[in-house]
Design a protein around this nucleic acid. Structure first.
Lengths: 397, 397
DNA sequence: CTCATCTGCTTTCAGACTGAACGTATTGAA
DNA sequence: TTCAATACGTTCAGTCTGAAAGCAGATGAG
C-alpha cells in the first residue's frame, strides 16, 4: 500500500485546476512527477470523469501536438452566499470557479434565527434548482466573527440572528454537511484574491469599512483564521481619547454619532469624502483618515502583506483619497504595500464564499490543504455585476 | 525511485527528536506508519549513527520489554548567538537541544562592521573549540530587522555595524554557510517556546520592551517572518499625539526623553515601575501602560496568540503590574490570552538562536519544514543562568 | 518447573507505485 | 523524401510499503 494514497493523483488534479487548460507535459513539469506517472494519473482522472481531453493545441512549434487536458467544469456546482445585514447575495459557480449565476435579494431581517436560516436555505436551493446533482458545497459569509472550532458566531450586531445556535442548526440540516461558515471579510478577501484587486497578492489584507470595521487576512495564499475569528479586527485598538475603540472612529455609525455630537448635520458618512466638503467636514475626514492610517499601519506591520484591499461603503468613498493615504502610510512604514480599492464591489463576499465552497469540494476530491493555494486560478471576471444567469454559461431552468 | 525520498525516515527521526526517549512501538503510533516500516527506518538511522538503542524499559506490564530509542545527542553541536547592543551571549547545544555551554561577554561596540564580525566569529569558534567536528550550524540574533530574502539588516540603531554588508560577508566567510540570521526578538520567542514561558503555546507573541520595542510572532509553532522583518513591529503605530510612533512612548529612550521634557529627573525607566513611585511618576507609568495596552491589543487581534510573553528590561519591570494590565486587556478583548513575563531572562535570545541553528541541522538531515514544529521538544531548563559549562554535560576542554 | 500468554520487534511476501528507458505519433525543416 | 524534434504512451525493473506471520523476551498461573 502506498502510504500517501492518491497523493500524486491529487497533485495532478491540483495543477490541472490551477492552470485551466494544460497538457500532460506541462503537468509533469509543474508537479515534478515523471511523464509516466502524470499520464497514468490523467488517465485515471479521465476515467473518474474529472478530467477530459478537449482539443489538440497547435503550439506553432513543430512536433506532435499536445492534447489539452481540462477539468470537467460541470462536474459539480457550488454556492457562495454573502448574508449581509441589508442584502444577501448568492453566486453559483462550477468546478473551475466560473460563476454561473448571481442573485441578490434583500435580507429579511425581521425574521428570527430559524426563520432566517430557512429562508436562506430556500433561496440557495431555489438558485440551484435544475442542477443535475444539486449543490456539492455551500459557503455562507456572515457579518460576524466565526469561531473555527465549533462554528459559533459572535460579534454580529448588525444581524444578531446568526449568533443563535438555531441558525446554524437549521442551515446545516437544510443544506447538508458540506457547509462552510466564515466571516464575510475573510470571504471577501478570498474573492478579491481570485477575481479582483488582489489577484497578484499571495499575502493580503482586506479591510471592510462600512457599518463595521472588518478584516480578512491571507498569508501565503491561506486565510488566517484565529480561534475566535478575531484576526485582523483592529477596530478594537483603544487609540481614541479615553481609550475609545478605533472602530468608533471610522465606521458609519461612529461617524454619524460623532457628527451629531459636534452639532453637524450630515446625510451620510459619505458626505465627509465629497469633493465639496467644507472645513469642518474636512477636519473630521482627517480624523477618520488618521484612524484608518493606524489600521493600515497595523495591517502592514502585522503581516507585511503584498497588498491591502479596501472595501465596504466607506472604503469605496475613500478611493479618491487613497494616494494621499498611501503616501502617509509610506511615511510611517517605507516598505508599505499598495492600498487599492476592492474591484468586485458588493460581490466579493459571495464570490469568495463560492471559492471557499469549492475548496471543500476539492478537499473531498483528495487535494491536500496546500494544494488550495491559488486554486481556482485567479482571473478577471468577465461579465458585469448584476443578477441573473451569466451569459454563455449553463444555469438553465 | 520514491518521489518522496526519505519521507518516512524523516518522519521517524522527527518523532524521535520530539519525544526524546521512545520505543519503536510508540514511534509507529505517533507517525501512523506500520511497525515494520518504523523498525526498518530505525535500523537505517542507527546505521547512519543518528539513533541509538539505550536501555530496555521495564514497563511493569508483562511481555517483552521495549528497547528505548534515542537520538545520538552528540552527533552535532550548534551555536546560538545573541548579539546585543551591550552584551553578547553564546550558547552551545547538542543535537537534542540540550545546552552544553554558555558564555556572556560585552559587545565591542567600538569596532567597525568587519571588526565586529571577526570578533564574533572568533568568540564563537573559541566557544566551540575542542569539539570533534566543529559547529554544525550557527544562528545569530541581531538587534534589527532582517530581510528573509537577502538577509540584509535594517533598523538596527543600537548596533548599526550589523547593517553594513561587510558584517554579513565576514561572518559568513568565517562561520561557514550554515549560518542563520534573524531578529533577536524572533529568536527570543523561539527560546521561550522551547525552554521558557511559552512552552505550551503553539501560537505566541513575544514583545521585547527595552531600549527598543521588538516583537516575535509564531503561528502554529512556526515563526512568522515577513519579507522585511517588520512583522509585529507595532512600535510604528502612529497613536501618540501628532501621530507620534508608539515606540516613542514605551521604550527606554522614549521614556527618558519624555521625563526630561516634563522636567522630571529619573535615573532609569525602571523608576516608573517602582513601588514607591510618586504621583507624577505613576501618571507617566499609566501612559506607558496604555501604550503597551495598544500593543497588546494589536498582538491579540492580529494573531490570536495562546500567550503573550513580555521580555526586555522594561518588560521585566512591568511584571508586578501584569495582572492589572491583563485585566485591562480583557476589558478590551475578552478572549485575550495570558500575558506572562519571559522566563529565560537574557538568555532567551541565545537559546532561541540555538534552536534555529538546530533547525538548520534538522533540515539537513531530511526533516520537512513542518516537522520542525515543537522540535526539539520543549523542556524546562535545568541549571541556573550563568556562564561556563553546564554541570554534568560534555563541553570539555 | 512448564507452559500459556502477552508484548515488542523482525521477517516474509504480495501489492502498488514510480522513474528511466524505450516506442509511437505528428509535424516541420532540410 | 528523409530526418530531426517534440509530445505522448508503454514497458519494465526497482523500491517501498503494510498485512500477516513468526520470533524473542518477559511474566505469571498452575
Amino acid at each position: 500500500m502506498d502510504p500517501h494514497p492518491n497523493r500524486n493523483r491529487a497533485a495532478v488534479l491540483a495543477r490541472a485546476l490551477a492552470s485551466a487548460p494544460t497538457t500532460r507535459t506541462a503537468l509533469a513539469e509543474a508537479t515534478g512527477l515523471s511523464p509516466a506517472t502524470v499520464s497514468r494519473m490523467v488517465d485515471a482522472l479521465i476515467g473518474e470523469g474529472l478530467l477530459q481531453e478537449t482539443a489538440e493545441v497547435s503550439s506553432g512549434r513543430r512536433g506532435r501536438r499536445a492534447t489539452l487536458i481540462e477539468v470537467v467544469a460541470d462536474g459539480a456546482v457550488v454556492a457562495g452566499v454573502d448574508l449581509g445585514a441589508s442584502s444577501t447575495r448568492i453566486v453559483l459557480a462550477d468546478l473551475l470557479g466560473e460563476p454561473l449565476h448571481r442573485r441578490t435579494c434583500p435580507t429579511p431581517t425581521d425574521r428570527g434565527a430559524e426563520g432566517l436560516a430557512t429562508w436562506l436555505a430556500d433561496e440557495v436551493v431555489a438558485a440551484g434548482r435544475g442542477l443535475t446533482d444539486g449543490l456539492a458545497a455551500v459557503a455562507v459569509g456572515l457579518p460576524g466573527a466565526v469561531r473555527g472550532e465549533d462554528r459559533t458566531v459572535s460579534s454580529a450586531p448588525n444581524l444578531p440572528q446568526v449568533e443563535q445556535p438555531g441558525f446554524l442548526d437549521v442551515l446545516e440540516k437544510r443544506l447538508g454537511p458540506c457547509l462552510d461558515l466564515d466571516n464575510d471579510s475573510n470571504y471577501a478577501l478570498l474573492g478579491e484574491q481570485r477575481f479582483g484587486a488582489a489577484r497578484s497578492a499571495r499575502t493580503a489584507v482586506m479591510l471592510t469599512v462600512g457599518a463595521g470595521l472588518g478584516a480578512g487576512v491571507a498569508l501565503e495564499g491561506r486565510l488566517l483564521r484565529g480561534r475566535n475569528g478575531l484576526v485582523g479586527e483592529f477596530g478594537h485598538l483603544p487609540v481614541g481619547p479615553l481609550g475609545t475603540p478605533l472602530e468608533h472612529l471610522v465606521t458609519g455609525s461612529g461617524i454619524m454619532r460623532r457628527a451629531a455630537e459636534l452639532g453637524m448635520d450630515i446625510a451620510s458618512p459619505a458626505a465627509l469624502f465629497a469633493e465639496d466638503a467644507d472645513g469642518q467636514l474636512v477636519a473630521m475626514r482627517r480624523h477618520v483618515e488618521h484612524a484608518l492610517l493606524v489600521v493600515l499601519t497595523a495591517a502592514v506591520v502585522s503581516y507585511e502583506p503584498d497588498m491591502i484591499v479596501l472595501g465596504g461603503r466607506i472604503g469605496r468613498s475613500l478611493t479618491p483619497h487613497l494616494p494621499e493615504l498611501r503616501e502617509n502610510l509610506r511615511r510611517i512604514v517605507p516598505s508599505a504595500p499598495p492600498v487599492v480599492p476592492a474591484q468586485l464591489s458588493d460581490l466579493s463576499g459571495a464570490l469568495g464564499a463560492a471559492v471557499a465552497a469549492l475548496h471543500r469540494v476539492y478537499l473531498g476530491l483528495g487535494l491536500a490543504d496546500h494544494d488550495l493555494v491559488g486554486v481556482p486560478s485567479p482571473r478577471a471576471l468577465g461579465s458585469a455585476v448584476g443578477d441573473g444567469p451569466v451569459t454563455g454559461s449553463g444555469a438553465e431552468s
